[in-house]
Design a protein around this nucleic acid. Structure first.
Length: 516
RNA sequence: GGCCCCGUCGUCUAGAGGCCUAGGACACUGGCCUUUCACGCCGGCAACACGGGUUCGAAUCCCGUCGGGGUCACCA
């Protein structure tokens, strides 16, 4: 039996670091023929859990990280929401109390704070005095008569060490003395995360706890609880953080402004914003943030590209392999080859993977992915006509690797716009249309186009070369003005492809507009 | 501050004592190709945090220093 889990808190978005944790858990479960469980850590959520959870579920599903048990799919050990399992936690607390592994503590927050400050003043590590520890009913009654309220604390060992054989870090040891008597149940009777975590992992029969490094220091108290409860100890693997670009700090959604100071990072976000804007998606940091997976979905990244990139963030197979399909990842992934050091998230490299994966796709698939962007941008009907689909397919074929993600089709919006509303880029028009002699040449070449025998790429190319020879000009003198005239831009795919796709009528109309 | 983790090119990494004058990829950059852009091809820049050991020999083992991060909540 091999069971892993991913336990997100309903925060309203799927963080890129969370994706990596989920992915590793999923990969392991699939590889071992085990189960991947999704559990919702909502012990402290007062707000609308459903609403805050949906984006996380959607994100995982979009990435193809499917769960065998959890929200929407159920499972034999449910419910999978911590908020619905309080009776289980209560029972565990009772057992801990009965076994002498936990106690009622009647100290007030002020008293606790005073102890803590005293320890700090004397420069010794803080450890709770257990002054208001109540282990008998009589003690409880006495404290309660003073108007005190009880939390439940763990009675942690004070000597010896705990050795942990972490699957990525190796052996790690902790001295029990430096552990605290952590609170596991609040004064209001609700329980805290660590207890819930231990109980759930046991109830769900989790065999491998694969989680972020921040939980490494929390592990002793969890092991203490599970041993006190008589539960088996799962295998642990603590993954390094996904760090922010160019640093070792944890990647954070709130620091987008800081990341944007990096030129390359900013360029990528700028490009994505261009796409988002054209399809009417908000671009403020809350709705559109590269730390959140929804960002990539919005602009048309491929889930496989993200999966491939994320897998390599902290894991590698060897010194050669870069590109992996999902299936290869499932076969080849191993915790033993996970790095110990944090890895910084590099959107440029993600983009390189996106490019690679996208170019593997057959043209029809590219078109299927790109079509929704044209629809959302209002450039084609919804659903698109056969004619529009055909046009899109031609554009995609001719654009080749200039289209690196589905949303990039919008860089070629001019193919789909009516001739009358084509806009000319100011700089491009100034440089090429208003150049000396450009309009005369353009007018002459227009006649050639009007009378060309046919309008295929080969003929167009010949026509152009004949024209250049006849006028004794350099090809650049005519090719650039024509491009700007028919596309409004100075950059783009091969000009003859552009002309042929547009067709004679549209080309002539556009040139006429450019000439006036 | 205590405890824990980590430290190879800007970034992701290969490297488990000699194969390393440290390899690959992304990025950057020079050139070629070329109607622009992109691609492609050829080339370049660039790292073992530092100091001590151990050893014939260390990026690899040990110790220390420094640096970075995490954790010490009636948050998850």
């Amino acid at each position: 039996m091999f069971r892993t889990r991913f336990a997100p808190s309903p925060t309203g978005y799927l963080h890129i670091g969370g994706v990596r944790t989920a992915l590793f858990n999923w990969l392991l479960a699939r590889q071992q023929g085990g189960q991947f469980i999704l559990r919702i850590d909502d012990t402290d959520q007062q707000r609308n859990v459903h609403e805050a959870l949906q984006p996380i579920l959607d994100g995982l599903r979009w990435l193809g990280i499917d769960w065998d048990e959890g929200p929407d799919v159920g499972g034999p050990f449910g419910p999978y929401y911590q908020s619905q399992r309080s009776d289980r936690y209560k029972a565990a607390v009772e057992r801990l109390l009965a076994g002498g592994h936990a106690y009622y503590d009647y100290s007030t927050p002020e008293e606790l704070k005073a102890e803590r400050e005293a320890a700090e003043r004397e420069k010794r590590p803080f450890r709770y005095s257990r002054r208001f520890m109540a282990t008998t009913a009589a003690e409880r009654t006495a404290f309660e008569s003073q108007g005190r309220q009880a939390v439940v604390r763990l009675k942690m060992p004070t000597e010896g060490t705990l050795a942990l054989d972490d699957l990525v870090r190796g052996r790690v040891e902790f001295a029990w003395l430096s552990e605290q008597d952590h609170v596991i149940q609040r004064a209001d009777g609700t329980c805290l995360y660590h207890l819930a975590n231990v109980v759930d992992d046991y109830d769900f029969q989790i065999t491998h706890v694969v989680r972020a490094e921040e939980h490494l220091s929390n592990t002793p108290r969890q092991v203490f609880m599970l041993e006190a409860l008589g539960y088996p100890r799962p295998a642990y693997a603590h993954l390094p953080f996904v760090a922010e670009p160019g640093s070792r700090n944890k990647l954070s959604k709130r620091k987008l402004d800081k990341y944007l100071k990096n030129r390359d990072f900013a360029a990528l976000v700028e490009h994505a914003r261009m796409i988002a804007q054209k399809i009417g998606h908000p671009v403020d940091a809350d709705a559109f943030n590269p730390v959140i997976v929804d960002f990539y979905q919005t602009v048309g990244y491929l889930p496989d590209a993200i999966i491939n990139y994320m897998a390599l963030l902290g894991w590698s197979l060897d010194d050669k392999s870069e590109h992996f399909s999902r299936q290869e990842l499932i076969e080849k992934f191993s915790l033993a080859r996970v790095n110990k050091a944090p890895a910084s998230f590099d959107p440029q490299k993600l983009m390189a993977f996106e490019d690679w994966h996208f170019q593997q796709l057959p043209p029809t698939r590219k078109r299927e992915l790109a079509m929704p962007f044209l629809e959302k941008a209002g450039l084609v009907a919804s659903p698109p006509s056969d004619e529009e689909s055909l046009l899109a397919e031609k554009v995609i074929a001719a654009a080749g690797d200039r289209i690196k993600m589905a949303g990039d089709i919008l860089m070629f919006a001019y193919f789909f716009q009516p001739d009358e509303s084509l806009e000319f880029d100011d700089k491009a028009a100034k440089k090429y249309l208003q150049a000396e002699g450009a309009s005369q040449l353009l007018a002459k070449f227009r006649c050639r186009l009007a009378t060309a025998e046919s309008f295929d790429v080969t003929t167009l190319e010949e026509t152009m070369h004949d024209f250049v020879a006849a006028e004794t000009i350099k090809i650049g003198q005519i090719i650039h003005p024509v491009r700007v005239a028919v596309t409004g831009q100075s950059v783009g795919m091969g000009l003859f492809d552009t002309l042929a796709i547009l067709g004679r009528d549209r080309c002539l109309r556009r040139i006429d507009r450019a000439l006036t």
